[in-house]
Simulated assay, not measured.
Amino acid sequence: MAESAEIVGRDRELRQAASTLRKGSNLLITGRAGIGKSALLRVLHELMGGERPCLWVPEGTAKEQAYALARQTHEHVGLRVPETLIPARFLGRARREGVHWRWVGRAIRRMPSRDCVQMVADSLEASAQPVLVFMESLELPPSQAEQFAVVLEVAQVAACMDAANRRERIRRLLWRFPEQERIELRPLTREACREIAERWLDEHPVRFESDRVRAAFLRAVEQDSGGVPAAILGMLETAAAEPEVTRATVRQFSHEAGVTYVDMTPVVILGVAVVIAARYVARGVGSAELYVLAGIGMGLAVAIRFFVMPMMGRR
């Protein structure tokens, strides 16, 4: 239910994404945490899997991802395994019948992840069928991003990226996803939020004090979730844990995913610039009072930058 909930209200994005992939272009799905990026990617993986070979790279360490990619490549298009990895007792059969995974799986797991991904890339490049690789997340450290860059050179890729991603770390990957090949998931409409909540409640009955309390709870979900599917599901699961939802408890339900944080950096930078300008003006006109006030303003700006900004947020 969680996955299906996250794609309610995403018909337009799903059609656009499928169209982009069918044209042979790469695809990047962006958006804030909890907005349903991975859920949409999984639906696309299932949809496109009926049309062509599709591989799925889950989140994990470089070694885990490389091994999963190698195994799926072997299953779907055939992995070009060097004979040095095939046990001598199976070498003759491998030349006649092809390589069985059980013969080489352990050796591939022990390979350096970079060598494993390069072997996958060579196999994808040699494949007679175009292969589509789904990467659950581009939240990769620089070394891992460098490692998977070779996959983007030989295969079509669809991936997810958090809107808050430090993009400098994955610059080598991002240039493969032009702006026209990116889809940003925005918060759901209130109607979609209500539909998710009502579907969930149909499958997971929750005891409400009255029908009016149930209606009030649904309104609270619409308003306080911020249109974020993860927040909606979090609020529903919290309500389900209560013996009974009453009017007094309705407003207590919330979820961290529904909180919208405000970036105050531009405001602080502007404030610092004004304070610095005020200090020069004060020295120019010989105003001790203005000079002192500017100094106090500078101190406040520094305090906001280091102590207040990390804690600021808005529902």
Rank of each mutant, 00 (worst) to 15 (best):
M1V: 11
A2M: 10
R10A: 12
D11R: 11
E13N: 00
L14W: 11
I29V: 15
G34F: 05
I35E: 01
I35T: 04
L40D: 02
L41Q: 04
V43Y: 14
E46T: 09
L47T: 14
L47H: 13
M48D: 07
G50F: 09
E51M: 11
P53D: 07
Q65L: 01
Q72W: 07
H74F: 01
E75H: 06
T84M: 03
P87D: 08
L91E: 08
A94L: 05
V104H: 05
R106F: 02
A107R: 08
M111Q: 14
V117Q: 01
E125L: 13
A126K: 05
A128S: 15
M135R: 07
L138G: 07
P141H: 10
A145F: 05
E146K: 04
E146F: 02
E146A: 09
Q147W: 06
Q147S: 03
Q147R: 13
F148Q: 06
F148V: 10
V150H: 05
V150E: 07
E153F: 08
V154A: 02
C160S: 08
W175T: 12
R176E: 08
F177R: 01
F177A: 03
P178S: 04
Q180A: 11
Q180H: 14
E181M: 04
I196A: 08
W200L: 10
L201N: 00
E203H: 11
E203L: 14
R207C: 11
R207Y: 02
F208W: 11
S210Q: 02
D211Q: 10
R212A: 15
E222G: 00
V228D: 09
A230Q: 13
I232V: 15
I232N: 02
M235Y: 10
E244F: 03
V245N: 00
F253M: 03
E256Y: 00
A257Y: 13
T260K: 15
D263I: 00
I269V: 14
V272R: 12
V272N: 00
G284K: 09
S287N: 13
L290D: 06
L293R: 15
A301N: 08
A301D: 04
I304L: 04
I304R: 00
F307A: 11
P310T: 07
P310Y: 06
M312K: 04
M312Q: 11
R314T: 04
